[in-house]
Amino acid sequence: MAKHVLRLIAVAYVMFLLVLPVGLIIWQTFGDGLGPFFESLTSPSALHAFKVTLTVAGLAVVANTIFGVGVAILLVRHEFPGKRLLGAFVDLPMAVSPVVVGLALILVYGRFSPVGGLLESWGIQVIFSTPGMVIATVFVAMPLVARSIIPVLEELGDEQEQAAHTLGASRLQTFLRITLPGIRWALGYGLVLCLARSLGEYGAVAVVSGRLVDQTQTLTLLVEERFQNYDQQGAFAAATTLALIAVVTLLLTKLLRPKDRSDGN
């Protein structure tokens, strides 16, 4: 009896909080068929938003992957004072409000700050432009790749790496032939998480982009702008696209996660 009550509570809670709202918007988007959906998504503004989103997310994922792998190896394979502190700093972005991230970057890289002014005199505009949006996205998604591979690196141990080294392999060779194959599923998992977070970032990008339509507008900003301008179809089409990306992400992470475990065993 108690078992059934708990099951009912859990299912109803997830149903009303998650499944029905997301389901409703997908239903309403495709309510008038696929025509209006594709029409909304192929408008010049929407196509431009796609391009900006992919550029920003792509660059941010590359940066976070290189950093994530580097910092993970550093934290797991090397000994140095302040290691715990470095680990805490890597996780710090998760606790910062996206709006605060945006403000922080404006204060350092905005036109009226010393650094921003210097960069501008060199012809580099960071805030209200692509570089600022990339930095903001890198900030919010920073720990995801590192945190995904750290447990696997720990579990793998460094015996094989040591052996390769003894047999004369260079650092790069050891990384490419030994370390990388060992962490590939975890890396894939982290990449997917990082990409999803980057594609979906709203708050930090809203602040640093200046929300310039057809210039710095990403897909998430498009959702908000279309909705505020009473273009429900446009907002729903973009939101549904992002929701479908999220669902694909979810399924990909489920596929990658178990392999990760068996790899470790």
Binding site: P21, L24, I25, A196, G200, Y202, A243, A246, L250
Partner: peptide
């Protein structure tokens, strides 16, 4: 149920707000 629990982590927050507004 096990799979969709993580959906809020993957769904952009602005979309989360929009879907809630659609139902509520």
């Amino acid at each position: 149920l096990e799979t969709i629990i993580d959906l809020p982590f993957a769904l952009p927050t602005i979309v989360a707000g929009l879907v809630l507004l659609a139902l509520y």
